[in-house]
Every structure is written in structure tokens, then in C-alpha cells.
Simulated scan of single mutants.
Amino acid sequence: GDIGRKEMPILRDPVILDDLDYLIIETTYANKIHSKPDEVEEELAKIINETYTRKGKIIIPAFAVGRTQMLVYMLHKLFDQNRIPVMPIYVDSPLAVAATNVFQAHPECFDHETYELFLNNFYDPFGFYRLKYIRSVDESKKLNEIKEPHIIISASGMAEGGRILHHLMNNVGNPNNMILFVGYAAENTLARKIMDGNSPVKIFGNEFEVKAKIKTMDYFSAHADKNDLLEYVGFSSPKRLKKIFLVHGEESQAIPFQGELINRGYKNIFYPKTLDEFELD
């Protein structure tokens, strides 16, 4: 269902499957358009600089595989270009540390930009001197004692488990801090509640007032936006494509996308509900 995104940092563009008979396709951001890369870099740099000036901390809930590596890549790039201040950056997730090791072991999968910016100059895109990978629980706990401005990237992205819960508990109440969400969060998850402006929120059974500044940037998501999804469907003719199934998306995203496809001549477009059954020819 997930088709991936083109022109993203690190990995090469996904391969498109064309001339299909049936298509099951995600609709996570089927009614949204992602920001352009240069706009995202500028916005991220602004967020970091403003929080640094306030002497605050930046807490980023992020999925361990893919999202964390992309964030580290962009932070490394901004740091090398002197667009963000010198401040500690911590990746606090055992799975993210292990996943990053896999990325580092397979540079043959990287795209042209990663080679141009880093590998051709013998730089590791996932390692620079202000970045530290946290492995042990004791190291993780000590991060809460740091008073100077810093960045913590920690799993899980939807803040439903993992070390991020401790970092949110210790930092969500400080108005100088920034909680930066960099991907989709499902309804009723802690991340979604904070995104939607709920306060107080429950963490480990206790209520905490949300006083920190909140920002969401969906650019880092691995999910394609409306334009990418339409382009992908367009590689299969309406005359050939017998059925399209819209999945992995809320109704507010899937239903408008369904209308877009109908306007382009596609038929038999379904937004299935649990236990729906379909027959394929």
C-alpha cells in the first residue's frame, strides 16, 4: 500500500509499478501537499534557532527506522552550513541506533545528493561531533539533567511507548521548549492529542499541562502526498485498472482523493471498512 516518496534525502526514489489490474494504495496524505525541501530546511533551522535563543530544548518523537535517519541527515547538513547553532543532539532509541548502523553499512542504496554532500567528501551522513547516540537506560535518564539547549530525537513517533514518554513528561510543561512532530500520528495516540492542542495530557497515568510550543512538519513522512499518489495511479490506465482500494488513511484524506480519481476517469474505487470482502476477477 505505501508507495514511498521520490526526491527524498538518503535513499533512491522508489520503483513505480505500472499497467496494473488492481491497486491497493495508501491515502495517509491523499488530501495534502508536502512542503518543498528547501522550505523545510529553512523552517527547521528557524525552529531550532528560536528555541536556542529561548534557552529551550527541542524534543522530537520520531520513528526509529527512516525518520530518525532523515532528521540526523538534515541536522548534519544544516550544521555544516552554519545555519543552526552549536548544540548537542541526542538520538535516544536503541532501535534507531541499530537501524542507523544498517544504513551506514549500505551506502550503495543512497541517492546522488547524499554522495555529493557527504560520501564523496568522506563524511558519514549519520555522524558528526555534536551528535551522540544513546544506548543505555542510565544515559537516557541523564539527559533530563541537562539544562543547556539541546535536541533529543526519540521513539516512538506516535508517543505511545518508548523513551520519548519520559522526555515528554519532563519537558512538555516548559514554555521555552519545543515539541516537534515530524510525521503522521493516528487518532487517540498521545502524539495526536498534543498535536491537536489537548491539555492536560496523560503520561504514565499522570496529567501534565502542555505549555511547550508545538509544531508539526509532515515533510519528513515516508508517506506520499496527493500529487505523488495521483502520479502513481496515473501510470495505470483507467481502461485497464479494474479496482482501486484506498487504505491507510482517514476519511478526510481518502474520500476527496476518491473524487479526484473519479474525475480522472477511474472507476470501482473503494474505501474499505473492516471485514469488507471483495472478489477479484
Rank of each mutant, 00 (worst) to 15 (best):
K202F: 02
I164P: 01
I60K: 04
S35Q: 14
I151L: 05
V86K: 15
L229F: 06
S199D: 03
R264A: 02
D21I: 11
E145F: 07
G1H: 08
V40Q: 02
N176G: 07
E108W: 05
I203L: 08
M74C: 06
P61K: 09
D111Q: 03
E250N: 11
E231P: 00
D92G: 10
H34S: 14
M74V: 10
E260W: 10
Y266T: 08
A45K: 01
I10C: 02
A105I: 02
I16H: 04
L131P: 09
L23Y: 10
D218W: 02
G157I: 10
A105T: 06
D38V: 14
L117C: 04
P200L: 11
L275K: 13
L117I: 12
N101T: 06
I58D: 00
K226M: 15
E279C: 14
F79L: 12
G183H: 12
F270E: 08
V15W: 04
G66C: 11
R240S: 12
D38I: 14
P94A: 04
F220G: 04
P88R: 13
D2H: 14
V72R: 05
F270H: 11
D228F: 01
N206H: 10
M178T: 14
S35E: 14
N198L: 08
I84V: 12
G162F: 02
T100E: 03
I164L: 07
I24T: 07
Y115P: 06
E26Y: 04
R83Y: 03
I89T: 08
H166S: 15
D276G: 09
H223G: 01
A254C: 09
E187I: 10
T27Q: 07
F110K: 02
V86T: 15
Y52V: 01
L17D: 03
N188E: 05
R83N: 09
F118Y: 14
K147H: 04
A64I: 06
N198P: 00
P9Q: 04
F208W: 05
P37I: 09
K243V: 12
N144P: 00
K142F: 01
Y219K: 04
Y52H: 12
T68G: 07
S221V: 05
F245A: 08
K147I: 13
E231G: 05
V247R: 13
